[in-house]
Nucleic acid binder design. Structure first.
Lengths: 198, 198
DNA sequence: GCGATGTTTTAGGCGTCACTAATATTCAGG
DNA sequence: CCTGAATATTAGTGACGCCTAAAACATCGC
C-alpha cells in the first residue's frame, strides 16, 4: 500500500492521533509515545498499537523506542483537520454567538462529521478568514498554513505597548480567565506589571 | 437497569436504530427485523443482535419473531434525533445556502455530533421553526411533535388547487426531480394531469 | 560497564457492531 | 394438519480501539 492507493476515509480516532502528532512536533521533530498518550488521555500501549497501524498505512514513520513523525500524507490529513477545527470554531463564535472560550469541545466533535462542502460553505460565509478566534492561523483548503510570529508575553519588556496576536491555552479555565481580562486577539495592551497565574 | 438509571450517551449506531424504528412504526405498531434491516441497509442478524441489546437497555420491547416497539425512553431518544436532524437541515438550507435536496446526508452525520446547546442556538437563530425544508414537523426540545395532516397528491381530484404541505421522499434523485418542478412546501398548485414517475 | 529507573512495546482481553452460515420459528396453501 | 417459503434468531468470526499486566529496551548515575 503506497501513497497512490485510494484511501478509505480515516476514522475519528485516526484523525485525532494525526492532529495530536502534528501539534506535538512543530518543527517535524519526532513525537514520543508517552507525549501522544498524555495529550489524547490514552494509555501508552493504546498509542503504541495505533502508531503501528498508522505507520503500516503510510501516515507516519515510526522508529521503535525513538518516536514518530508524520509523512506528507499524514501531515496533509492533520492540516485538513486543523482547518476544519478552526473554521468551525470561528463560525460558532461569529455566527452563532458562542463565547470564545467554549467552542473547543464542540469543534472537536464536529470536525469529524462535517463534509468538505460544509467547511467550504462556512469558510465562504465567514469571508475565508486567516485566523480563528484564538488568533491561530487557518490552513488553506490545499494544506498551506502561515506561521503567525508573535513574541510570548513574558518576554515583552515592562512598559511596552503591543497587540495581542494569539492566545494559546489548552485549559478552558485559563481561557476564561484571560477572556475575563479582555486579553483577546486584536487587543492593544501595555505591560504594566506581571502577576503569577496560580 | 431501569428508567431511573443514569444513562451513558447513546452511540451513533443506537441513535440510528431508534430513529429508524420510530419512522417505521407511525402508530406504535411493531416494526419487523427485516424492515429495520432494509431501512438501515444492514443484515437481518445484525439487527437481531442490536435489538437484543437495546431491549436489555430498556429502549425498546421485543417479542421474538414478532417485532419491536419503542419504550417511552426509546421514543424520547428517537424524537430528540429527529429534532436534531430537522433543525440541522433547516439551518443548512436557510443559513448556508444548501440546496433543499442535498441536506439529508450532511444532517445524517451531524445529528450525532452536535451538542444540545448548538441545536438550541441553531433553532433560536432560525426563530424556532415548526417545520423543516421538506415540510416535516420539528419536535420540540421536550419531545412533542405535531402531526401535520395532508392529503397525498394522488388523492387530490383533477382540477383542484392546493398548497403543498410536505414532500416525503427518501430518494435524493426523486427529490431533485420534484425540486426541478418547483414542487416544494408552500407552493400552490393546480392538479392538471397525472404522469407516472419512472 | 552496570544496574536502577523510566519509557516503550508485546501479550492477552473486552465491548461494540458489523458480517456469513446454520438453525429455528411462523404462516399459508394444499 | 403438514410442508415449504419466508422471516428471525443463534453461532461463530473479524475489525477497531481501548484497557491492564508483563516483558523489552534505553539511559543516567555511579
Amino acid at each position: 500500500m503506497n501513497a497512490a492507493t485510494v484511501r478509505e476515509p480515516l476514522t475519528a480516532s485516526v484523525e485525532d492521533y494525526l492532529k495530536a502528532i502534528y501539534n506535538l512536533s512543530p518543527e517535524g521533530r519526532p513525537a514520543s509515545t508517552s507525549d501522544i498518550a498524555h495529550r489524547l488521555e490514552l494509555s501508552a500501549p493504546s498509542v503504541s498499537g495505533m502508531v503501528k497501524r498508522l505507520s503500516e498505512q503510510g501516515l507516519l514513520e515510526h522508529v521503535p523506542y525513538k518516536g514518530v513523525q508524520l509523512t506528507n500524507e499524514g501531515r496533509r490529513a492533520a492540516l485538513r483537520m486543523i482547518r476544519r477545527h478552526r473554521i468551525i470554531e470561528t463560525y460558532l463564535v461569529d455566527r452563532l454567538g458562542y463565547p470564545w472560550d467554549t467552542v473547543h469541545a464542540e469543534a472537536e466533535r464536529l470536525e469529524h462529521a462535517v463534509s468538505d462542502t460544509l467547511i467550504q460553505r462556512m469558510a465562504d460565509a465567514l469571508g475565508n478568514p486567516h485566523a480563528d478566534p484564538h488568533g491561530e492561523p487557518i490552513p488553506t483548503a490545499d494544506g498551506l498554513i502561515e506561521e503567525i510570529s508573535a513574541t510570548p508575553l513574558p518576554e515583552i519588556p515592562l512598559g511596552d505597548t503591543v497587540e495581542i496576536r494569539r492566545v494559546t491555552a489548552g485549559d478552558p479555565e485559563r481561557l476564561r480567565y484571560l477572556a475575563s481580562l479582555d486579553l483577546k486577539p486584536g487587543a492593544i495592551i501595555t505591560v504594566v506589571e506581571r502577576q503569577p497565574f496560580q
